[in-house]
Amino acid sequence: MIRSDILRDIAPIIRDHLVVCNIGLPSQELHLTDDQPTNFYMLGTMGLASSIGLGLALAQGKKVISIDGDGSVLTNFGTLPTIANNVADNFILLIIDNGSYGSTGDQPTYAGKKTSLTAVATACGCENVVECSAEDTGKTVQAALDSNKMTIIVAKCESGNVKVPVITMDPVVIRDRFMKAVQA
């Protein structure tokens, strides 16, 4: 399974929650698969999906799922200690770990080599860190939602992309639609 298969599988599970989705192909794939007002698509700023999601979760009570990638977490490694030390039990960080920078041509990341993001998140002090296979991602996300505990999920999958169009929605429209969904 590749990332787009995971996104298709989890779409029915996450669609009723607030989702902050990583820049590039992940946002484009989610937008194509299941566009929802509760989705915040990042059009720029690689690495900040987890930070935006944590800030959102700390600011209000609805459940927030940040869909991140291994490359993006490596870009913003400082996020993991911040998450660990500012527990928001309505926050799930789903790291889809395909061991590559998918949006830029599948260059390998260190997470696909010697570095375990599961071990790093645990070492940073995150308390509920779960590594799962691509096939088990849906039930792992559902379990994390049911637990009401802040959870970091590292879903291991294969590298690869499908062809998807870019998102042409205006950023202010994305943000305004999303904020109305947050307040609804």
Binding site: F40, L48, S51, I52, L54, G55, L56, A59, T79, T82
Partner: peptide, 8 residues
């Protein structure tokens, strides 16, 4: 990023 999330 944290501030953007908090604002939203």
């Amino acid at each position: 990023g944290l501030c953007a999330g908090a604002f939203m």
